[in-house]
Computed example of a mutant assay.
Amino acid sequence: MEITQLSHYQQAILLLAALIALTSFLMLGQSRLLRLVFIFAVQGILLSITTALAADVLDSPHLYISALLTLSLKGIFIPIMLQRLVINMGLHRDMETLKNPARIMMAGTGLMVFSYYVCLPIIKLSPLITLNTIAISMAVVLLGMLLMITRRQAVAHVVGFMSIENGLFFAAVVSTYGMPMVVELGIAFDVLVAAVLFGVFFFHIRSSIDSLDVDQLNRLSEVEK
């Protein structure tokens, strides 16, 4: 099926899916935490637009609430909180040196191809748009994991964790036409609590050892007095 044969809604969903995947790649290649947080905010805004579009086309009023929660939490509140954490801890001046950035981006490309390969059997049972959205959702999840693996700063790990949740949420909204409202509210509350707890832990860790570098945290050992 050619893209011109798809409805305007399906074309818009594919465009938003491509932009969400692009933000995951951009996060993978960022060395500054503030830019990383900004791109994560853009991804959250794109996700909220996708949810609002699905709510309008599918006539699902509860998805409007989900879109508003997504915009408020992932597009505004959590990015602002992470930005303040980065600035207050003095991490905005640091530039994290990526080890083998070309290999990291190649690995990200490989994960994208792998996602499409895994999702190919779906095309026999579902339309082409479902294949693309599920494949991109899986790719966003895998790219979030890769971001957590390749970064040393704990803040980047939080962004990777939230990006994984974004990929799962995108698949739920587009492929299954949204989740029950109770489930969506529960997930939103869990994400909010997790973000607040991460912030509290970061302040305590920073005040204790003056670093959020994961490599240094792994080398910590108790010193007998």
Rank of each mutant, 00 (worst) to 15 (best):
L71V: 04
S72Y: 06
S72K: 04
L73T: 00
I76N: 06
F77P: 02
I78S: 04
I78W: 01
P79E: 00
I80V: 12
I80C: 13
M81H: 07
Q83S: 14
L85K: 01
L85V: 01
V86T: 08
I87T: 14
N88S: 04
M89I: 08
M89N: 13
L91P: 03
H92G: 08
H92V: 07
R93A: 10
R93K: 15
D94V: 09
M95V: 15
M95S: 15
T97P: 04
L98R: 04
L98D: 00
N100W: 08
A102R: 12
I104P: 01
I104S: 14
M105Y: 07
M105P: 04
M106T: 07
M106C: 10
M106E: 13
A107E: 13
G108E: 02
G110F: 02
L111D: 01
L111V: 02
M112P: 05
V113G: 06
F114M: 13
S115M: 14
V118R: 07
I122H: 11
I123Y: 12
K124E: 13
K124L: 14
K124Y: 15
L125Y: 15
S126G: 10
P127K: 05
I129G: 00
T130S: 12
T130K: 06
T130W: 10
L131V: 06
N132L: 11
I134G: 06
I134L: 14
A135R: 01
A135H: 03
I136P: 00
I136W: 04
S137K: 07
A139M: 05
A139Q: 07
V140P: 00
V141E: 09
G144C: 04
M145R: 11
L147N: 14
L147E: 09
I149R: 15
I149G: 03
T150E: 15
R152K: 14
Q153G: 12
V155T: 07
V155C: 05
V155D: 00
A156I: 00
A156K: 07
H157M: 00
V158P: 05
V158C: 15
V159F: 03
V159N: 07
G160V: 02
M162A: 09
S163P: 06
I164D: 05
I164Y: 07
I164G: 03
E165D: 03
E165L: 07
G167C: 03
G167Q: 00
G167S: 01
F169Y: 11
F169M: 12
A172E: 05
V173S: 02
V174W: 09
V174S: 14
V174H: 05
Y177Q: 11
M179W: 12
M179Y: 13
